[in-house]
Each structure stands twice: as structure tokens, then as C-alpha cells.
């Protein structure tokens, strides 16, 4: 493959280099970064930030040397003055003007948006709850099934069965909150694989959330939106403790304990 002299002229020219660099940076940020393992789409405000940084860098580079700077300016000046580029000149002026108009219109136009859904993800639990008429003190409460280490495997297996028959449609096969019913809910069902849910919580907190569900949330937890059922109506105390055992066992998280308020280690 031989480069045509024409193409070469463009590749060596600082203006076209700068333009090429900007396009390349845009493509990398918008299309390249999401392909990296563990990353996602870059929000447009961040894209803008990155692009401004790249632009500043490019400008510093081209203006660093007088000769390069003069060369860089050439196509711009040519666009402004040369008779043969008249059409390009008019086009650039028109496009810039329309763009400014459109952006301004977008800023001043009022449209109704969904109100922000401010909610406390882990609201403070009550000190005690009533479970099927029985008062339970949550503070300091441990999973009673853990006191029988010899039966732990059996309890966990029991919890798995309960999970698959009740929790799976929303919280999913992978416990990541993406079950086959998850798309119908806003907020999405909790993702237990994430280090921000059960990894941060004591088992008594999880018990409270499972037992009382969405309707049992305090106001700051936006109880009107949560589709989490009140499992007290479906499951016994023992069944809930078993399903909690399964959640930690399947994801590999360790519950936060009352002695050392840490946890969150895999």
C-alpha cells in the first residue's frame, strides 16, 4: 500500500493532524472505552470534559512552535479568505450559526421531566419490628441458623429453594437484580452481586427488608415505588433466615457483623 503524495501532505500538516486527533479521541472515548472490561457508556458531560482537555492539549502542541503555528493557521485563514473556498466559508458560517441557535433553543425550552427520584438506598432500620405478632429486636440480632454450623449446608440449600421459588423473577438467576421481570420495575430490583447491597449490611437489616418489603420502608426510602413484597405474608421467620444464608453463600459476600462494623469482603 503506497500513500499517495496528496494524503501524505494532509497527514504531515499540523491542522489536519489536530483534526484527526480530535476525531480519534472522540471515537475512542465514545466507542472504545465502553468496550473495556468493566466499563460502561461514557456520559455526555464527561465526553465534553475529555474533549475540551484533548483540544487544549492539541492547541498547546500546535502553538508551541512558531513555524508549526503558522502552518496550523493556514487552512483556517484560507477558508476565510480564498475565493475558491467561498462555498466552504458560507457553509461553516451557516452550520455554526444554526448550531448555536439549536443549542440555545434546547436551553430555554421548558419540557416536563420526571421528578428526581431521591431516595435513601439503605434507610436506618427500626430498633425492633413485629414479625407475625412477635416482637424482634433488630439491634444486635444475628442469623439464628448460623448457630448450628453442622446444619448450615442444609439450611443454605433450603434457602436456595425458597429463593428460586420466590425471588428469582426479579433478583435473577445470578442474583444481580436482572431477573426476567426486572425490566418492569423502577427502581430495579436490588443487585446482590454489587458491593453496595448485602455486602454492606448486617443480616438483621436484610431480614427487616425482606420481611417488611417496600410497604415497610420509611418515607426516605420512597415506599410508593418499591415492588418488594412484604415477605412476612409468604414466608416464615426460619425461611427468611435461610434465604439470607443463601444470598451470602451464593454471592460469596460476608455479612457485616455487629462486633466489627465492617464486612464487605469477598
Amino acid at each position: 500500500m503506497t500513500r499517495s503524495p496528496n494524503l501524505r501532505r494532509y497527514l504531515d500538516h499540523p491542522f489536519w493532524q489536530a483534526l484527526g486527533l480530535l476525531v480519534l479521541a472522540y471515537l475512542v472515548i465514545v466507542y472504545g472505552v465502553p468496550l473495556l472490561p468493566g466499563s460502561s457508556l461514557v456520559p455526555s458531560s464527561v465526553v465534553l470534559q475529555y474533549m475540551v482537555t484533548v483540544l487544549v492539549g492539541v492547541l498547546i502542541y500546535v502553538s508551541d512552535n512558531d513555524e508549526r503555528w503558522a502552518l496550523f493557521k493556514q487552512p483556517l485563514v484560507a477558508m476565510l479568505v480564498e475565493q475558491r473556498l467561498r462555498l466552504v466559508r458560507i457553509l461553516v458560517l451557516a452550520v455554526v450559526t444554526l448550531l448555536v441557535g439549536w443549542v440555545t433553543f434546547g436551553q430555554v425550552r421548558t419540557t416536563v421531566a420526571a421528578p428526581p427520584n431521591l431516595r435513601s438506598i439503605h434507610p436506618a432500620p427500626p430498633a425492633e419490628v413485629t414479625f407475625r405478632g412477635k416482637t424482634m429486636t433488630l439491634t444486635g440480632l444475628e442469623n439464628p441458623l448460623r448457630q448450628q454450623p453442622e446444619s448450615l449446608a442444609a439450611f443454605t440449600a433450603y434457602g436456595k429453594e425458597i429463593y428460586y421459588q420466590n425471588c428469582l423473577p426479579c433478583h435473577g438467576d445470578h442474583l444481580d437484580g436482572l431477573g426476567h421481570f426486572a425490566a418492569g420495575f423502577n427502581p430495579l430490583p436490588a443487585n446482590f452481586q454489587d458491593n453496595g447491597t448485602i455486602a454492606q449490611l448486617t443480616e438483621s437489616f436484610v431480614f427487616w427488608r425482606v420481611a417488611k418489603g417496600g410497604p415497610g420502608l420509611p418515607r426516605e426510602g420512597t415506599p410508593w415505588n418499591s415492588a418488594m413484597p412484604r415477605w412476612e405474608d409468604f414466608l416464615t421467620e426460619r425461611q427468611i433466615w435461610a434465604v439470607i444464608l443463601f444470598l451470602y453463600d451464593q454471592t460469596g459476600w460476608k455479612p457485616r457483623t455487629w462486633e466489627k462494623a465492617e464486612g464487605g469482603a469477598k
Binding site: V100, A114, P115, N225, A227
Partner: peptide, 28 residues
């Protein structure tokens, strides 16, 4: 479904077009 929102839009008031037009004139 869970909650979504319905908004009854109004036609864009003519005043909304003033600032974009000014911005365009200045730019040009």
C-alpha cells in the same frame, strides 16, 4: 407496571424563540 409520568405539553410560547434568534444573529 410501576409509576411512570404523563405530561400535558403546551405549545412553545413565541417568547421562547427570542434568545435563540438573538444568539444566531450575534454569531453570524
Amino acid at each position: 407496571s410501576t409509576w411512570y409520568f404523563l405530561a400535558l405539553d403546551q405549545p412553545t410560547p413565541p417568547g421562547t424563540f427570542i434568545s435563540p434568534v438573538i444568539a444566531m444573529v450575534v454569531t453570524l
